[in-house]
Design a binder for these strands. Structure first.
Lengths: 338, 338
DNA sequence: TGATATCATGAGAGCGTTCCCACGAACGGG
DNA sequence: CCCGTTCGTGGGAACGCTCTCATGATATCA
């Protein structure tokens, strides 16, 4: 095992208090002493015992990452891997560790208890797609600092980090309209996911800006899956859309298949736009115009935000929206002749 | 915060020792006392403080999951999500927690230290695709229990859990041969990944069993990516294969594209078989015959194995190989007429 | 120059557990 | 009936750290 504070102290000829101060970057330590202690610690390969530190200080430098796995579809694209990568790397950079929970219905209650109590954790990142996740309520009840991945209702005092779904999809739909498309349809995500709601709202906003009346037959709610996209497109096709904005690339791919099966051409007859920029998007036929999200970045920002909250628990809730990139490929063609 | 042992003791009218015994399922506690303590603990919503327990006992009930992210390709299929899911759920079931490290070159040294020392962790699951991962060496040096995901050289005393790559690919290639294919080629994975090596070995073994001479021009090493599969297939095509066994579905998909681009038909001219059964495999044209791995199961078994090792540190290394399923779709056609 | 603030350091207590040992009660065998 | 076990229980010590307070040395100001 690693040596203890006392051993370092002995070797450096100081008290364990001084070593502790050095290790924690406290001021009021003589430059020379600090250097000596540091060098001894380095030589002996000292690593503070996290459990002891935690017990004494109440801080663990561990943050929990809770991902309720209700929505299995999310595992088919690299969303979570990227998110997790962003989170862990930023944690590392900030000397924190990540504890992972994938919420399973069966263990959820036990897990929640474990997360909230036990004192093991300084804060939680909740990456739930659902707006009404039960963990959220539990989290709010306790004093544990937490950050949501995904926007939340603005009148509740919760901190969150999200992609700017609303602006992104508004921009995308505006783009379709600018190309000269006149009957732009949309396949939305589920209404209980904020991403679904926001992306629909962006669609509506773009129409409103151009004073284009909303045709409810051109709006179909789906579930972010390819299969769902396929079926939804089939329902939309009879109403003669000339463009489709799918709220996820997976659904866009499904929609493309439906369009093909109906004997229509992309983009000549119907322009297709997606959201997410999954790897497949660049290899569809034709390549898919879509919105790229800074997923990894979002993980990073979530960690930074959480650490900030942990350090300043009584400040205002933080709300961060990240900008996206419009990735223009050929599935929407170019501007139509007027 | 959660109440402490002493508070439970006070309410139950016993000493903290007795409460501790109850919480840890020690024998030699009166039935009635045990019941009383348990009920008090339940009422007060008691949760043991993990830091304190760890400090006193040296055990944390936390296992580390280290995934070196060198190979980014692995993030494009749901391998890791499934693995992680298997690991976390089994950890939950066994009252353990998961600490996650995605190894990044930059932080690796710090991370290793953190993993190995600090006493935070009871054991490690190392899900590295590489055979010569530097973390492995560090891990072996210390006394920390660990389990590898992925087979390892048999003469070193390390425990591992893996899919039976060798038998699986031998079976697949045998299947192709049984269908009457005579020039079966293979696109292998990298030589520094055990999965790549084993799957090639299975291919060779199947040929050997039928006394079919190995044509080295029909064997091309690649990198598990679609792009790699595409290029490799292009190199193989001139040598007139009538079947191709790709060591991953991603490569198989690339190979299919190359075959198409060369104007050949699947499966009439060339049968295609993959490995992994990624979601896409069932939706290629034609649907891909492949090998399904019990990835989630593998995670579960790894956890169980690790916990067993933690409890019995001096036993023999455990080596587990899991069986796979041959998923027969239409990319290999049916038996050719003789 | 004496009173006061600042700095570098050390010592003690405490964080919530587990582990070890001690103690009395109950029990059984000689 | 006494002595050695076994059982249920309690108390002390320890785990390795942080935090608060005390102390003496040095710097600052009137």
């Amino acid at each position: 095992m690693s040596p203890t504070l006392v051993e370092i102290a002995k070797h450096a000829g100081v008290s364990r208090s001084t070593v502790s101060r050095v290790m924690n970057d406290h001021p009021n330590v003589d430059q020379e002493t600090r250097a000596r202690v540091l060098s001894v610690a380095e030589n002996l390969n000292y690593q503070p015992n996290i459990a002891a530190r935690s017990l004494a200080s109440g801080r663990t430098q561990i943050i929990g990452l809770a991902i309720p796995t209700g929505v299995t579809t999310l595992f088919t694209d690299p969303y979570f891997p990227l998110l997790i990568q962003g989170i862990t790397s930023t944690c590392n950079a900030n000397d924190h560790s990540v504890m992972l929970w994938l919420g399973e219905p069966e263990y959820e209650r036990r897990t929640i208890r474990q997360i909230l109590q036990g004192g093991l954790i300084d804060g939680v990142i909740l990456a739930s797609a659902l707006m009404d996740d039960p963990i959220l309520a539990a989290l709010q009840k306790r004093q544990l600092p937490f950050v949501l991945i995904g926007r939340h209702v603005p009148n509740e005092p919760v901190s969150y980090v999200d992609v700017d779904n609303l602006s992104s999809s508004r921009e995308m739909v505006s783009y379709l309209l600018r190309l000269g498309r006149e009957r732009v349809a949309t396949i939305t995500g589920p209404r209980n996911m904020i991403a679904g709601v926001d992306r629909l709202e962006g669609y509506l906003m773009a129409l409103r800006e151009r004073r284009i009346p909303v045709d409810p037959r051109l709006i179909v709610e789906s579930d972010f899956t390819e299969e769902g996209g396929y079926r939804s497109m089939q329902r939309i096709l009879p109403f003669e859309p000339d463009a489709i904005f799918a709220a996820s690339d997976a659904m866009a791919v499904g929609a493309m298949r439906a369009i093909r099966d109906a004997g229509k051409r992309i983009p000549e007859d119907i322009a297709v736009a997606g959201f997410d920029d999954i790897p497949l998007a660049s290899r569809t036929d034709p390549p898919l115009t879509t919105v790229r999200q800074p997923i990894q970045r979002m993980g990073s920002v979530a960690v930074e935000t959480l650490i900030d909250i942990i350090n300043h628990p009584h400040a205002q809730p933080r709300r961060v929206l990240l900008a996206t990139d419009l990735i223009i490929r050929s599935s929407c063609g170019s501007a139509l002749p007027r």
